[in-house]
Amino acid sequence: MSCSLRISRKVVLASFRASIPVLLGYLAMGFAGGVLLAKETGLGAFWAFLTSSTAVSGTLQFLIVDMFCNQTALWTVAIITLSVNIRYALYGLPLVDRWRGIPIWMKLYLILTLTDETFALVVENKVPEGEDSLTYCFLISMFNHLYWITGVVSGNVAGHLVQFNAKGIDFAMTALFIVILLDQLKSRGNRFPALIGFVSALVGLLLYPSNMLIPSIMIGLVVLLAFRSKLEPLVASGGQADE
């Protein structure tokens, strides 16, 4: 493995071509997140840039608007982020050996930008023959990162420029979660965990209406662990499909 980028026309084109589906998805989804940020908080492009470039997460881009508006307690922010994105903790597994010994700045950037979509493309690794695989993966990560930032910032700017009654636009976040869940439910292994989550959330809402998420997550975690012996075989046979 080489220790620096080997940029060629061919590898730039190949990585760009591979990233085109992500380009469309990130620009559009990022745009929605940017509009939401503008309309719900009134915050401008600086915050759109800061949140999108550092969090690099679709779900959190929407949730952070809710956290900003509610001034959510920091430990709650931490637990919610952890639970929503804990799958990221597994994304390193197929990459840890591949990325051993590469320059640290490169590794830090590749890790920062490891989203669901980037992970899929990087693991697929369809680098053209004779080209450097690390360069290819790095470019894909960078392109996707830039698409996401561009989407959120332009959505934010548009949200400030275009005046309309935005009441109810926060439903976009609900819809995002419904869509993610429906895609996850295609894998049978995800169905019972989803039901556990739903019931835990109702219990959490009844017990702590003002701060339901943390108790819901705790209850859900306990129940999921209690059902481990039943659920683990289901999950192993195809529960890994991602949104």
Binding site: R87, N190, A194, G197, S200, A201
Partner: peptide
């Protein structure tokens, strides 16, 4: 936990929303 928590938490977030 990594493989089952995602659908559970997404369900919770729908209820939360």
């Amino acid at each position: 936990v990594g493989s089952v928590i995602s659908p559970a938490v997404i369900s919770m977030l729908i209820v939360y929303c």
